[in-house]
C-alpha cells in the first residue's frame, strides 16, 4: 500500500522584517515515514516545523493536514489537529518548575480523562522505554542534556501521536549520547509506527534513519528524495551539500599534508 501525505506545504512564503526566509516551500510528509530536513543553519528549518504546528502563519501559501488547511480552522479545531502532534524541541522545552513525572504526565492530565493510576502506569511505561527509571522526582535542571531530550521525547510520545517533530534532537550531545537518542527513536518508531519529521545537522548519520531527505536552501526545498537518491543526486545544490557534509575534511591534498 502506498503511503499518503499526512502534511503538505504548498508554496509557503514567510518574511521577518521584510526579509524573506521561506520563499515558496513545497513539501509532503508521508504517513509512517521519516522525513529529514537538512540545510545550513538559519535557513528556516525550524520555521517549517512551526508552520506545520500552526504556531506561525505563512504570509502566503497553504499548510494542509490530511487536506485540511491548518490556518483557516478555528482555535478549537487547531487544538484537535494538534492532538495528533508530538514535538521534541531543540532545547526539550521541559517545564522547569515540574518534576520529570509531572512533565510527562501533563498531556495525559490535561487532554485525557485517565485516572491517576492509569496516568502513573502510562508515564512509567514511557520512562522505562526511554531508560529513565528512577528519575521521576528529579527536576529538569538536575538532568543531563541527553536525559532532558529523552524526557522531552517521552512527553512527545505519551499521547501516542500520529506525527512527531524532532527539532535537532542531538544538537549539543556527544557521539554516544546522540547514538542513544537515535536508538530510542528507532525503537519507538518501530513500536508505535508514527510519522516523523527530523530537522538535523547530523549528516551522514541521520540519513540512516531517514526514508526521505529534503534539503532546504535559500528558502526553497530542493528534492525530497530517498537517502540513496539524495547522496547520488546530480542537482548542483544537493551535490554541493553532500560533498561539504560527507566529503573529505580538507579541500586539497596539500592542505591535508599541512
Amino acid at each position: 500500500m502506498n503511503a499518503q501525505p499526512v502534511v503538505r506545504l504548498i508554496d509557503v512564503w514567510k518574511s521577518f522584517d521584510s526579509q524573506p526566509i521561506l520563499k515558496g516551500v513545497n513539501l509532503s510528509l508521508m504517513e509512517g515515514k521519516t522525513t529529514v530536513i537538512v540545510g545550513a543553519s538559519g535557513q528556516g528549518k525550524t520555521l517549517i516545523i512551526k508552520h506545520i504546528l500552526g504556531l506561525i502563519r505563512p504570509d502566503s501559501g497553504k499548510v494542509l493536514f490530511y487536506g485540511k488547511e491548518i490556518n483557516s480552522v478555528s482555535k478549537k479545531e487547531l487544538m484537535e489537529i494538534r492532538m495528533n502532534f508530538g514535538v521534541l524541541f531543540q532545547n526539550a522545552a521541559l517545564f522547569d518548575s515540574m518534576t520529570v513525572f509531572d512533565n510527562v504526565a501533563l498531556p495525559l492530565r490535561e487532554r485525557t480523562k485517565k485516572s491517576g493510576e492509569e496516568i502513573k502506569k502510562t508515564v512509567h511505561e514511557k520512562l522505562v522505554m526511554m531508560d529513565l527509571e528512577g528519575s521521576d522526582d528529579k527536576y529538569p535542571a538536575q538532568l543531563s542534556g541527553g536525559m532532558r531530550k529523552r524526557v522531552g521525547l517521552a512527553r512527545a510520545l505519551v499521547l501516542e501521536p500520529r506525527i512527531i517533530f524532532f527539532d535537532e534532537p542531538t544538537s549539543g550531545l556527544d557521539v554516544a549520547k546522540s547514538n542513544e537518542i537515535y536508538r530510542v527513536f528507532f525503537r519507538t518508531q518501530q513500536k508505535l509506527g508514527y510519522t516523523a519529521v527530523i530537522v538535523s545537522h547530523d549528516v551522514p548519520k541521520i540519513l540512516k534513519l531517514a526514508d526521505y531527505v529534503a534539503l532546504l536552501h535559500d528558502g526553497v526545498i530542493h528534492g525530497c528524495l530517498t537517502p540513496e537518491e539524495f547522496q547520488l543526486s546530480q542537482e548542483p545544490l544537493i551535490r554541493e551539500y553532500v560533498e561539504t557534509t560527507m566529503g573529505p575534511l580538507y579541500s586539497s591534498e596539500t592542505e591535508e599534508e599541512l
Binding site: 512551526k50 504546528l53 504556531l55 487544538m79 484537535e80 494538534r82 492532538m83 502532534f85 508530538g86 514535538v87 524541541f89 531543540q90 532545547n91 522545552a93 521541559l94 517545564f95 522547569d96 501533563l106 498531556p107 490535561e110 487532554r111 512527553r155 499521547l159
Partner: peptide, 12 residues
C-alpha cells in the same frame, strides 16, 4: 524557553 509553544503543541 519555548515552554508556552510546547503547551500549544500539546493542545493545552
Amino acid at each position: 524557553s519555548e515552554q508556552i509553544d510546547a503547551l500549544e503543541c500539546m493542545a493545552i
